[in-house]
């Protein structure tokens, strides 16, 4: 039974995050009750509340459902190839160091096909905020098994249930040297927004995992009801444990989910290490790439 409350006096002329979106591209492609939209809302709110210079902020996505985020953000936005959002973003950041570069993509894109880039960018501590929506599955191609599909969960390519051990992504990121690691579900609106704000303000390789199981395919294949039921389940079974040992953050099928902020530390970024090193070795001969880019223009 549903209750509809009429609150016409609260109807705004424009959605509060409309200035951050390409409204000429709305409606978006995401399914009803998909968690990606909520993550985008939190991200836009975080951009607003941190007051970053949007002209100097770029967003890069790979391919997949979350890979469409770049296409809706009213920023310098790059919708790149499958798995290569992180190296593309690395070029963008190193080419013009003054930019705030955010990678917004999915688990298949960043941890599957792009997994190698993920670990190396973390190792180098490239100054990137990585927002990864984990939907447990390859959504856009029709619900195939992902490196994040929980054990025993069904996918279209594991019709009898998944027997491959999935990644524990916060642990992977932390062990490769990420400076900031957090996980929330897309129903943890305020906490997720706060993490995004922290992620925007920190330096180095920052990784935020957003749990949003695919409300269409993962829900249907695993008979978990509607997307909302699924989200509700993970929200209600989330245990917030800041600073948890990242080894304990694996995700089991329909079990409790540990959320929180696990890593928040400072470490010299790739560019800082490079500047420090070359200054020491080369002294006055060192000419760093200018913050506004190494271009030669007429």
């Amino acid at each position: 039974m549903t209750t509809v409350t009429q609150q016409t006096e609260m109807v705004a002329e424009e959605h509060p995050i409309a200035p951050y979106l390409r409204m000429d591209r709305i409606p978006h492609i995401w399914c009803p009750t998909c968690g990606i939209g909520t993550a985008v809302k939190c991200f836009a709110t975080a951009l607003e509340e941190t007051g970053v210079d949007l002209d100097k902020t770029a967003v890069v996505s790979g391919i997949g459902c979350t890979g469409r985020v770049a296409g809706y953000m009213k920023l310098d936005a790059f919708h790149t190839t499958h798995g290569r959002a992180i190296p593309f973003a690395t070029g963008l950041k190193l080419g013009r160091p003054e930019l705030l570069v955010i990678v917004f993509s999915g688990d298949g894109d960043l941890a599957g096909i792009g997994g190698n880039h993920f670990i190396h960018a973390a190792r180098r501590n490239i100054d990137l905020l990585i927002i990864m929506v984990n939907n447990f599955i390859y959504g856009m191609t029709g619900g195939q098994n992902a490196p994040t599909t929980p054990l025993t969960a069904r996918s279209s390519t594991m019709p009898f249930g998944n027997f491959e051990r999935p990644f524990n992504l916060p642990h992977l990121a932390a062990s490769c040297g990420a400076t900031y690691v957090a996980r929330w579900t897309s129903l943890h609106i305020r906490r997720l927004t706060k993490s995004f704000k922290e992620g925007i303000e920190r330096k180095g390789f920052r990784f935020i995992e957003v749990i949003a199981p695919c409300s269409t395919l993962y829900a249907r294949l695993n008979k978990l009801g509607t997307g909302f039921n699924l989200m509700r389940f993970y929200h209600d079974n989330a245990e917030i444990c800041h600073g948890a040992d990242t080894r304990d953050l694996g995700i089991d099928f329909q079990n409790k989910l540990i959320c929180g902020k696990f890593v928040d530390e400072e470490r010299p970024t790739f560019l800082e290490s490079m500047h420090e090193h070359y200054n020491k070795i080369l002294g006055d001969r060192y000419v760093p790439i200018p913050p506004e880019g190494g271009m030669i223009h007429g």
Binding site: F78, P87, F88, T90, G91, G95, R96, G293, G294
Partner: peptide, 12 residues
């Protein structure tokens, strides 16, 4: 991928 990304900053 990195050189395509970096080129979008105007750098050759």
């Amino acid at each position: 991928a990195a050189i395509v990304g970096a080129s979008w900053t105007g750098t050759k």
